[in-house]
Protein backbone atom coordinates (compact mmCIF):
# COMPACT_ATOMS: atom_id res chain seq x y z
CA UNK A 1 0.00 0.00 0.00
CA UNK A 2 1.69 3.13 -1.23
CA UNK A 3 -0.02 5.48 1.20
CA UNK A 4 1.91 4.28 4.21
CA UNK A 5 5.34 4.93 2.74
CA UNK A 6 7.62 7.56 4.21
CA UNK A 7 10.48 8.75 2.09
CA UNK A 8 13.14 11.27 3.12
CA UNK A 9 15.33 12.29 0.18
CA UNK A 10 18.38 14.40 1.05
CA UNK A 11 16.47 16.42 3.67
CA UNK A 12 18.19 19.48 5.09
CA UNK A 13 16.84 21.78 7.72
CA UNK A 14 18.27 24.97 9.11
CA UNK A 15 16.63 26.86 12.00
CA UNK A 16 16.14 30.62 11.62
CA UNK A 17 19.02 31.21 14.05
CA UNK A 18 21.39 29.37 11.71
CA UNK A 19 21.63 26.01 13.49
CA UNK A 20 21.83 23.25 10.90
CA UNK A 21 19.78 20.47 12.44
CA UNK A 22 19.45 18.11 9.47
CA UNK A 23 22.14 17.75 6.82
CA UNK A 24 21.01 15.34 4.17
CA UNK A 25 18.79 12.73 5.82
CA UNK A 26 17.88 9.80 3.59
CA UNK A 27 15.71 6.79 4.36
CA UNK A 28 12.58 5.03 3.24
CA UNK A 29 10.08 3.35 5.48
CA UNK A 30 7.49 1.04 3.96
CA UNK A 31 4.10 -0.03 5.20
CA UNK A 32 3.93 -1.77 8.52
CA UNK A 33 7.53 -1.16 9.49
CA UNK A 34 8.42 -0.21 13.01
CA UNK A 35 11.44 2.03 13.14
CA UNK A 36 13.39 3.36 16.10
CA UNK A 37 15.34 6.57 15.74
CA UNK A 38 18.19 6.96 18.18
CA UNK A 39 21.03 9.40 18.63
CA UNK A 40 22.73 11.75 21.04
CA UNK A 41 21.07 14.85 22.48
CA UNK A 42 20.87 17.44 19.73
CA UNK A 43 21.48 14.91 16.96
CA UNK A 44 18.29 16.01 15.20
CA UNK A 45 15.74 13.39 16.25
CA UNK A 46 13.00 15.80 17.27
CA UNK A 47 13.60 18.01 14.25
CA UNK A 48 13.31 14.97 12.03
CA UNK A 49 10.02 13.93 13.62
CA UNK A 50 8.59 17.39 13.11
CA UNK A 51 9.16 16.96 9.40
CA UNK A 52 6.86 13.96 9.34
CA UNK A 53 3.71 16.04 9.34
CA UNK A 54 4.93 19.40 8.27
CA UNK A 55 5.36 21.15 11.61
CA UNK A 56 8.65 22.02 9.94
CA UNK A 57 9.27 22.05 6.21
CA UNK A 58 12.68 21.03 4.79
CA UNK A 59 14.87 23.87 3.64
CA UNK A 60 16.28 21.51 1.02
CA UNK A 61 15.32 18.03 -0.23
CA UNK A 62 11.88 16.36 -0.13
CA UNK A 63 9.78 14.45 2.34
CA UNK A 64 7.17 12.19 0.77
CA UNK A 65 4.36 10.68 2.78
CA UNK A 66 2.40 8.11 0.80
CA UNK A 67 2.04 9.68 -2.61
CA UNK A 68 2.16 13.28 -1.40
CA UNK A 69 5.28 15.41 -1.29
CA UNK A 70 5.27 17.51 1.87
CA UNK A 71 4.71 21.19 1.12
CA UNK A 72 2.84 23.97 2.86
CA UNK A 73 -0.13 23.09 0.69
CA UNK A 74 -0.27 19.35 1.31
CA UNK A 75 0.36 19.77 5.01
CA UNK A 76 -3.29 19.49 6.03
CA UNK A 77 -3.79 16.32 4.01
CA UNK A 78 -0.69 14.82 5.61
CA UNK A 79 -1.90 15.68 9.11
CA UNK A 80 -4.64 13.10 8.60
CA UNK A 81 -2.14 10.37 7.73
CA UNK A 82 0.55 10.94 10.31
CA UNK A 83 -0.16 11.20 13.99
CA UNK A 84 2.63 12.54 16.15
CA UNK A 85 2.80 12.18 19.91
CA UNK A 86 5.10 14.95 21.07
CA UNK A 87 7.58 14.76 23.86
CA UNK A 88 5.75 16.87 26.43
CA UNK A 89 2.17 15.72 26.95
CA UNK A 90 1.32 19.12 28.46
CA UNK A 91 1.84 20.70 25.07
CA UNK A 92 -0.14 18.00 23.38
CA UNK A 93 -3.14 18.12 25.67
CA UNK A 94 -4.29 21.66 25.17
CA UNK A 95 -8.02 21.28 25.69
CA UNK A 96 -9.70 21.82 29.07
CA UNK A 97 -10.90 18.23 29.54
CA UNK A 98 -9.71 14.83 28.40
CA UNK A 99 -12.87 14.29 26.40
CA UNK A 100 -12.57 17.60 24.57
CA UNK A 101 -8.95 16.90 23.85
CA UNK A 102 -9.44 13.46 22.36
CA UNK A 103 -12.46 14.75 20.42
CA UNK A 104 -10.51 17.69 19.00
CA UNK A 105 -9.02 15.79 16.06
CA UNK A 106 -12.12 13.82 15.04
CA UNK A 107 -14.24 17.00 15.21
CA UNK A 108 -11.77 18.75 12.93
CA UNK A 109 -12.10 15.84 10.52
CA UNK A 110 -15.74 16.83 10.27
CA UNK A 111 -17.21 13.65 11.77
CA UNK A 112 -20.70 13.71 13.22
CA UNK A 113 -21.36 13.60 16.93
CA UNK A 114 -22.02 9.87 17.20
CA UNK A 115 -18.86 8.97 15.30
CA UNK A 116 -16.82 11.41 17.37
CA UNK A 117 -18.04 9.90 20.63
CA UNK A 118 -17.37 6.43 19.33
CA UNK A 119 -13.82 7.33 18.34
CA UNK A 120 -13.14 9.01 21.67
CA UNK A 121 -14.35 5.95 23.56
CA UNK A 122 -12.35 3.54 21.38
CA UNK A 123 -9.18 5.59 21.67
CA UNK A 124 -9.51 6.01 25.43
CA UNK A 125 -10.31 2.33 25.90
CA UNK A 126 -7.14 1.50 23.97
CA UNK A 127 -5.02 3.25 26.60
CA UNK A 128 -7.16 2.16 29.58
CA UNK A 129 -8.24 5.76 30.01
CA UNK A 130 -12.04 5.63 29.90
CA UNK A 131 -12.32 6.68 33.53
CA UNK A 132 -10.38 9.88 32.82
CA UNK A 133 -12.92 11.19 30.31
CA UNK A 134 -14.20 14.21 32.22
CA UNK A 135 -11.04 15.16 34.04
CA UNK A 136 -9.01 18.21 33.21
CA UNK A 137 -5.49 17.34 32.04
CA UNK A 138 -3.84 19.12 34.94
CA UNK A 139 -5.41 16.65 37.36
CA UNK A 140 -3.71 13.69 35.64
CA UNK A 141 -0.47 11.98 36.57
CA UNK A 142 2.39 11.98 34.09
CA UNK A 143 1.56 8.44 32.99
CA UNK A 144 -2.10 9.26 32.53
CA UNK A 145 -1.18 12.36 30.56
CA UNK A 146 0.93 10.45 28.13
CA UNK A 147 -1.76 7.80 27.78
CA UNK A 148 -4.31 10.46 26.92
CA UNK A 149 -1.87 12.13 24.52
CA UNK A 150 -1.58 8.82 22.69
CA UNK A 151 -5.35 8.41 22.68
CA UNK A 152 -5.80 11.90 21.27
CA UNK A 153 -3.59 10.97 18.34
CA UNK A 154 -5.11 7.49 17.93
CA UNK A 155 -8.58 9.02 17.70
CA UNK A 156 -7.49 10.48 14.37
CA UNK A 157 -6.92 6.88 13.15
CA UNK A 158 -3.62 7.74 11.51
CA UNK A 159 -1.85 5.48 8.98
CA UNK A 160 1.49 6.28 10.52
CA UNK A 161 2.24 6.84 14.18
CA UNK A 162 5.27 8.82 15.27
CA UNK A 163 6.36 9.33 18.86
CA UNK A 164 8.99 11.50 20.43
CA UNK A 165 10.48 10.01 23.59
CA UNK A 166 7.22 8.35 24.65
CA UNK A 167 8.44 6.65 27.82
CA UNK A 168 10.61 9.35 29.38
CA UNK A 169 8.18 10.33 32.12
CA UNK A 170 6.59 6.95 32.73
CA UNK A 171 6.93 4.68 35.71
CA UNK A 172 7.96 1.10 34.87
CA UNK A 173 4.44 -0.27 34.83
CA UNK A 174 3.09 2.49 32.58
CA UNK A 175 6.10 1.95 30.32
CA UNK A 176 5.27 -1.74 30.07
CA UNK A 177 1.66 -0.90 29.16
CA UNK A 178 2.89 1.51 26.52
CA UNK A 179 5.13 -1.14 25.00
CA UNK A 180 2.32 -3.65 24.68
CA UNK A 181 0.09 -0.92 23.24
CA UNK A 182 2.70 -0.05 20.64
CA UNK A 183 3.18 -3.69 19.72
CA UNK A 184 -0.51 -3.89 19.01
CA UNK A 185 -0.44 -1.00 16.56
CA UNK A 186 0.00 -2.65 13.17
CA UNK A 187 0.53 0.36 10.92
CA UNK A 188 3.88 2.03 10.37
CA UNK A 189 5.41 3.51 13.46
CA UNK A 190 8.43 5.66 14.11
CA UNK A 191 9.74 6.11 17.63
CA UNK A 192 12.50 8.49 18.61
CA UNK A 193 13.93 7.64 22.01
CA UNK A 194 16.93 7.22 24.25
CA UNK A 195 15.22 4.20 25.76
CA UNK A 196 17.07 1.61 23.72
CA UNK A 197 15.38 -1.30 25.46
CA UNK A 198 12.02 0.02 24.36
CA UNK A 199 13.31 0.37 20.80
CA UNK A 200 14.71 -3.12 20.90
CA UNK A 201 11.40 -4.42 22.18
CA UNK A 202 9.09 -2.59 19.81
CA UNK A 203 11.02 -1.71 16.65
CA UNK A 204 12.43 -4.17 14.15
CA UNK A 205 14.50 -1.55 12.41
CA UNK A 206 16.70 1.13 13.90
CA UNK A 207 18.21 4.30 12.44
CA UNK A 208 21.05 6.06 14.22
CA UNK A 209 21.25 9.82 13.67
CA UNK A 210 24.36 11.86 14.37
CA UNK A 211 24.93 15.54 13.63
CA UNK A 212 21.97 15.67 11.27
CA UNK A 213 22.94 12.66 9.17
CA UNK A 214 21.99 8.99 9.10
CA UNK A 215 24.94 7.19 10.69
CA UNK A 216 23.57 3.67 10.60
CA UNK A 217 20.38 1.97 9.45
CA UNK A 218 19.52 -1.69 9.88
CA UNK A 219 17.72 -4.31 11.99
CA UNK A 220 17.54 -3.32 15.67
CA UNK A 221 19.16 -6.54 16.88
CA UNK A 222 22.18 -5.76 14.75
CA UNK A 223 22.52 -2.02 15.36
CA UNK A 224 21.82 -2.07 19.05
CA UNK A 225 24.51 -4.66 19.71
CA UNK A 226 27.34 -2.64 18.13
CA UNK A 227 28.98 -1.20 21.19
CA UNK A 228 31.43 1.11 19.36
CA UNK A 229 28.78 2.56 17.09
CA UNK A 230 26.50 3.27 20.01
CA UNK A 231 29.18 4.75 22.22
CA UNK A 232 30.38 7.00 19.41
CA UNK A 233 26.89 8.46 19.45
CA UNK A 234 26.65 9.01 23.23
CA UNK A 235 24.54 5.86 23.57
CA UNK A 236 25.23 2.57 25.26
CA UNK A 237 24.10 -1.00 24.91
CA UNK A 238 20.52 -1.65 25.95
CA UNK A 239 20.39 -2.73 29.60
CA UNK A 240 18.93 -6.06 28.63
CA UNK A 241 22.06 -6.80 26.57
CA UNK A 242 24.61 -5.57 29.09
CA UNK A 243 26.44 -8.17 31.14
CA UNK A 244 25.81 -7.71 34.76
Amino acid sequence: MSHHIIDFADVHFRYPDGTEALRGIRFRITHGESVGIVGANGAGKSTLLQHLNGCLLPTQGTVTIGDLALTARTRREIHKKVGIVFQNPDDQLFMPTVFDDVAFGPLNLGLDEARVRERVDTALAMVNGLSLRDKPPHHLSAGQKSAVAIASVMAMEPDILAMDEPAATLDPRSRRLLISLLKGFTHSKIIASHDLDLILDVCRRCIVIGEGRVVADGPSEEILTKRELLEANNLELPLSLQKR
Binding site: Q50, N53, G54, C55, R75, R76, H79, K80, V82, G83, I84, F86, N88, D91, Q92, F94, M95, D100, A103, F104, G105, L107, N108, L109, E113, V116, R117, S152, V153, M156
Partner: peptide, 22 residues
Protein backbone atom coordinates in the same frame (compact mmCIF):
# COMPACT_ATOMS: atom_id res chain seq x y z
CA UNK B 1 5.37 26.50 24.47
CA UNK B 2 2.68 28.36 22.55
CA UNK B 3 4.52 27.44 19.38
CA UNK B 4 4.61 23.75 20.34
CA UNK B 5 0.95 23.79 21.27
CA UNK B 6 0.14 25.37 17.94
CA UNK B 7 2.09 22.60 16.24
CA UNK B 8 0.14 19.97 18.17
CA UNK B 9 -3.11 21.66 17.21
CA UNK B 10 -2.19 21.76 13.54
CA UNK B 11 -1.26 18.09 13.65
CA UNK B 12 -4.77 17.34 14.69
CA UNK B 13 -6.43 19.33 11.97
CA UNK B 14 -6.86 22.75 13.60
CA UNK B 15 -8.15 25.34 11.15
CA UNK B 16 -8.73 28.40 13.24
CA UNK B 17 -11.89 27.21 14.97
CA UNK B 18 -11.99 25.20 18.15
CA UNK B 19 -14.85 22.74 17.92
CA UNK B 20 -16.50 21.61 21.12
CA UNK B 21 -18.97 18.87 21.58
CA UNK B 22 -21.05 19.30 24.63
Amino acid sequence: RAERIYGAMLSRGFRGDIPMLR
